[in-house]
Design a protein around this nucleic acid. Sequence first.
DNA 1: CTGAAAGCGCTTACAG
DNA 2: CTGAAAGCGCTTACAG
Lengths: 333, 333
Amino acid sequence: MKDVAAVAGVSLATVSRVVNESHAVRPDLAVRVHDAIAVLGYRRDLTARTLRRADRLSASIGVIVEDVANPFFAALSRGIEDVARTRDVLAFVGSSDEDLHRERELAEGLAARGVDGLIIAPCGGDHSYLLRDRNAGTALVFVDRPPGFIDADTALADNVGGAADVVSHLVAAGHRRIAFLGDRADVFTAAQRLRGYREGLARHGLAEDAELIQSLSLPAEAYGATRALLERQPAPTALFTSQNLITIEAVRAMHEMGRQHTVALVGFDDVVLADVLEPGLTVVSQDPAALGRAAAELLFSRLDGYDGPSRRLVLETTLVERGSGELAPGAPS
Amino acid sequence: MKDVAAVAGVSLATVSRVVNESHAVRPDLAVRVHDAIAVLGYRRDLTARTLRRADRLSASIGVIVEDVANPFFAALSRGIEDVARTRDVLAFVGSSDEDLHRERELAEGLAARGVDGLIIAPCGGDHSYLLRDRNAGTALVFVDRPPGFIDADTALADNVGGAADVVSHLVAAGHRRIAFLGDRADVFTAAQRLRGYREGLARHGLAEDAELIQSLSLPAEAYGATRALLERQPAPTALFTSQNLITIEAVRAMHEMGRQHTVALVGFDDVVLADVLEPGLTVVSQDPAALGRAAAELLFSRLDGYDGPSRRLVLETTLVERGSGELAPGAPS
DNA sequence: CTGAAAGCGCTTACAG
DNA sequence: CTGAAAGCGCTTACAG
């Protein structure tokens, strides 16, 4: 910028004003500045700009998800990116692997890099460590799951409602022994979907059978858990899998056992190729990109000056019937 | 840091030395500094640090892929993240949507934010605009596809070899009319896989039939293109789809037409649930996470001082037999 | 409207 | 080993 000022024959301040369009500048000077910029191929250093400007804004944000390689979070990230792009904001993206320590490390690293805001799909646990950064002006939004021990804007899917709908759907097809396969109960979405499952059972006067409820530490365990459930006597006539990776493992197990046409299955979250399976895979689908966009809108409204109470957005889910969830109990094998 | 110095009763420089562990500091002073840091909850401002340090390193990099929501690029990003994490480097991630203008905008925005390096899955076209940034010290690596008009480190899969293997595999199963569905020819991977397809045909003395080669502008067109190909007389007995999203559309079309057991199919890139389809989906699989890790290693070796000629890493592909690629021509319908 | 000067939060020669 | 001072590339009151 010093060079630009020298070439244009104006002061540093004038170059800054032209580049920022912050003050009116005499047209002929502006032209000289623009010419100098073109000649030198000058590009402003945004980090120096951030350091000096009054609002300390950096036009960058941080995104922390469980795993960016999970299609759900990949689509969610993309939703955030799409909104950020309209404001020339770039996003750091990191994976917490459901590890609070890692999540915190990421959040601190992001804050140390001066991001304007943080969108976090939080692990279970205490997120009050973020209070200091928020007080320092970092906008904070949680997505997919709410935070613990801190009140903040949050964008969620209707996990309870969606899960209850699954149960109603299966009951309508005649099922009464419906198993639930979910993540560890300390994962918010897993807990909410389990709650919805229970509400669904209660709504139809069905008793809960603890042996039909499986909370898994890792999605990979769903394969074995599904096999074990289907080998029980009496076996459940329907399965509700509470997450995309779990659904995939359950489908794999059922197909290997040749039970895909005899045991009903509904998954939470949509999955690629679900419509091509035989039978097609019925799911309660959320729109992860929309979730990401909603979270980004919440974030930017804070950065735009909204200073009211925390908001909680709940996005509806959609039941997509494709066959596996419409099988009647005791369907021919 | 000023506050820390005041509380610890030392100079700014001493605090900096303690925090950076750059110079030996008298133990009692170091203790006082650490205490002051703990008391104040101090965290260093990394952007200010970057601005002032001699090497201008920011511990952040930029990643540009076609679409972070595409499972292939999502896994690739994660591979990069895993290597970056070992060095406490955070990554910006952006999607170019196969648009050179957008890619360039992203690259410039990233460079303006002072990233130490850029890993780009480039669109077709001229990437020489990046020369200036590389000369300014930004490390530069291309992944999945090589750049145009600039020589730089690149990590690729063996697209030609993998595609030729597909043809050999199908020929071994008895096929002679093998159709190819790929992206636009200006997408490098599409062009390479087409080349491999042609080399495969030549290897087995098969003539190329232009009507069996389809270059699509969008993966979504693969659905209609597959239907059209299979309605031809004579129809191809086997399909080679050159990319995950194209494979998915082709599978969908074949299943709807009920031809999945009569027409062979091999896809480039693996796909979720491929093993559960009937028949299972045979693919040439690359390891996108490994590709990402390789690219990140290339980048960090540059940042570690490697200054030799450009390197080109080519990762092997693996043919995964699952059924669809082992169907014989004229299999019963 | 313009420029000279101060200063964002750090690191780094330079003396001592 | 330590501190005072300069300065990274910018923005922003403050005069004029």
